[in-house]
Structure formats: C-alpha cells, structure tokens
Design a protein around this nucleic acid. Structure first.
Lengths: 235, 235
DNA sequence: TCGTTAACGGTTCTTCAGTTCCATTACGAT
DNA sequence: ATCGTAATGGAACTGAAGAACCGTTAACGA
C-alpha cells in the first residue's frame, strides 16, 4: 500500500518504529514506566500468564501503546535487557583474584537469591529461549557484565598468578555458571556456601590452566603444565 | 485413596485424575503419543506460541483428551520430564576421573548442541520457571541424572585422587553448569572445546578441594590443603 | 464372553488476548 | 508562541485458546 511516488519529498518510510522520531519527553517517560512495570510483572508472574494489558495498567499507560511499541512480550523483554545492560554496577577491586571472584560470586548469588531479581532473571532467560532477538539481547547483557569483571582476572594474569594465555572472560563465566545451574536446573539452595564454592572452583581451575586459550597448534589434548602447583596431574 | 467405607456405593471422589483407574492399553498409548508429540512440538516452537491443540493433532488424539488429562502446558512438560527421568542412558566407565568427566561433558554437550534436544531442554527449563510443579519435575530429572554419574567421582575418591569429603554430586553438576550457561545465558558455541574445558575445570577444582563438604566446624573460610599438588596456593 | 464405565473425540460455546479505529495530547521544529 | 504530526489512550472488534457437553469406544473385572 505504497503512497503514490510522485512528489514524495520525504520518501516516507512507513516502517518507522514508533518512539524513534520523538524520543524525548512523554515517549521516554512511557518507556521508563513500561520497562519498570514489565520488570515487576515478570518477577511476580512468570513469562506466561502475563499479559501486556497488565503491564500497561501497572505503568499507567494505555495497552494500545504497549502493543504498538513492543508488540510482543519477548520484544519487551529484549528492550528491558538492553536497558539493564546499560546500567552497570560498580565492581569491587581487592587486588587478590580469589577475593575478587568471591565478591563477584556473592554479588551474583545475592541477585539470584533475591525473590524479585531471581524471578526476573528466570523470566528473562525463559523469554530468551522463545525468540532469537531476545536471546541476542540476553547474550549482550551477559557479555557486558562479564566484560566488567574480566579485568580482575587480567590483573591476576599480569601478577603472574595465572597462565598468560588464560581467557579472563571464561573464568568469570565459570563463577556464575554453577549459580545459574542451581537457579534453573537443580534447584539447590543459593546459599553463601554455593557462592564460595563457585569462586574457589573457578580460581583453582584457572590456576591449574583449565581456562587457557587453545594454542595455535592445539590439535589434540595439549598437555598443559600448571605454572604454580601440580594440579595438572589430574589426568 | 481408600475404597469407600461401606454403604456409600459411590462416594464419587471426582478429584480422580483421568488415566489413573484404567492406565493400560489405550490410556498408555495416548500418553506415549502425546508426550512424544509434546517433545517434538516443544523442540520446534518454544514454550510460547505452542497450543495444546497442535500437540493433540501431532499425537493423533483429540484435543479434549490433552486438555482433560494435562490441562496446562506446564503440567504436560512436568509429565514429560517425569517420563524422561525414568529413561536412563547407560554411563561409561573408564577408571580415570578426567576421562569419566570428559565422557559426561561430551554427552551433555552433544545433547545440548543437538538442534532438537537443545531446543527441547531450553523449552523445558523455560517451562520450569513458570510453574512450581514443573520446576520440581525438572529438579528431580537432574537429580536422577546427577545420581547416575556421581559414582565415578566416588571411585576417584576411593582411589585417593580426590579429598575424602568431596561431594560427588557437586563435581558432576560442575561439569554441566558451564555448558548450560552457554546454552541459556551467554550463547557462546557449544563446541567440543567447551566440553573439554568444563570437564578439566571440574577435575582440577575437585582435585584442589573446591567441592569438599563443609566440615562440622566450618564457621569461616576453612583453609583447605590440596591432597596432591599445590593448587591450593591460589589464595 | 459380557457388562460396566473410564477414557476418548467431535462439536459447540465462552472468554479474553491482541488488533483496529479514531479522537486527543503534547513533542519539537520553526 | 504556533503549528504539524508523532505518539498516546479509550472503545469497539475479532480470532483463537480452552472449557463444556455428550455420544462413542474400549479397558478390565466378572
């Protein structure tokens, strides 16, 4: 249903997304209110039995607006994730790898163990399994978070505590992974002991060279020597 | 569920679940067909945009039957998980901890990297975030799977490769966790290198005592000494 | 083999998530 | 300040998920 081509000074691209031409003032307020409401609603009910009308009501916004700007629930979650990725929390810095990893593990644990935040993360992860765009948003969110913490591993490498070709991101991910496994898969309690174990395990494994990047000539199982200690004897 | 206490010929307990009184023949066939169809449908579409009518059609079964016996999608997933928990796959046994963990990691990796199985697990985990019963079913499923593999860690303990108070289940969970983290959170590829790293990291960390059960007098950070090697120097 | 009735399946009905329509508001360029 | 229109919000509409109804089929005890 294209408009007649003649005398079309603007080449009206009617695929223009709402909220992009006048992003200030009311539009921005609406987005803030809706994202906040979406977070609350997601935390209370899961990803299903949750209609956008309820989100609109909480946000004090017409449901038409929500449907027009986000369309689907997964799009809304994707936008929420993009928003959360921008809000970075400051990272502690102790100068000791294990302490840094412990701080990270405890931060993650506290977040996931919190009723609201934990439920919210569950819901966002569930939403990401339903839609590629939302999955990308989730992956980006974690990429940003991991990036923020990777430097403390790099510093440990620089101090000579870890092998030089250790992948810092992989170490940080290794701290979070067991905690998310408890949250989503096994259902074991997310207590402080779990956080401590996650941090210790990552530190020990990194120390032993488990997170070294595969070398250029790493065809088969490259035998790696731990730079300090003999943990590499496990095999 | 006792039979009627004489002279109440019916005492019709209408909370009787369908499929419990005549569980054989057609009823069992229906359940098998529906669970299979549910798995297929879940793998293709996610947990949302998936109606039970589609499942019924695939199973060659009236949609009324699906609604009557399972009611909600999450109930169906819970039943699917209970069914899957009973089908145990045989575990390899090599006699070396790292090889056993590698076998486990590669099995998990292959499962999650497989398009159908990976999507199915994603969907089931997502469903578990929406409903407590489904969550219980998922936790039970993993408890069974972890139980199956824990003995190989116990054997390593018996051989003296690991500290005596190592928690075998925790070690096995540690192998899976990074792979699920990739599947659900970070989106990094589930390649064989990831499986190998997961197995090595778990083995090294276990070796270093990261998965020792908290002792009776473990108030604060109990300093643990690695039984073989000096990986404990990380702190 | 037979009878009872649990369980199934087709049809119809109801409800509500999501869409469309249009009047109103207020952003932002001039 | 003024104007054009992007963006919003209420109301009416629609299609499909899921419940209700009831006749049919077959499990299982005798």
């Amino acid at each position: 249903m294209a408009l007649e081509p003649r005398y079309d000074p603007v080449m009206t691209d009617d695929t223009q997304e709402p909220g992009t031409v006048r992003p200030g003032g009311r539009t921005a307020r609406t987005r803030t209110a809706v994202l906040r409401a979406a977070g609350d609603a997601l935390a209370e009910h899961g990803i299903d039995h949750l209609d956008l009308a309820d989100v609109a009501r909480r946000a004090g916004v017409g449901k038409t607006t929500v449907y027009r700007r986000w369309g689907t629930l997964t799009n809304l979650v994707a936008d929420l994730l993009a928003d959360m990725a921008e809000q970075s929390l400051p990272r502690t810095e102790t100068g000791r790898l294990l302490d840094d990893l412990l701080a990270n593990a405890r931060l993650v644990r506290r977040t996931l163990a919190d009723p609201r935040q934990g439920a919210l993360f569950k819901a966002m992860i569930a939403a990401a399994t339903c839609d590629p765009n939302t999955a990308d948003a989730l992956h980006h969110f974690y990429a940003v978070r991991i990036d923020e913490w990777a430097p403390c591993v790099q510093q440990a490498i620089d101090r000579g505590e870890l092998p030089g070709d250790t992948d810092p991101h992989e170490v940080i991910r290794a701290v979070s992974a067991p905690l998310y496994y408890r949250l989503l898969n096994s259902g074991e309690p997310l207590d402080d002991a779990a956080a401590e174990r996650a941090a210790r395990a990552a530190a020990y494994a990194a120390e032993a060279g488990a997170y070294r990047r595969p070398g250029p000539g790493a065809g088969t199982v490259t035998r790696i020597g731990s730079p300090s200690g003999t943990a590499g004897q496990v095999p």
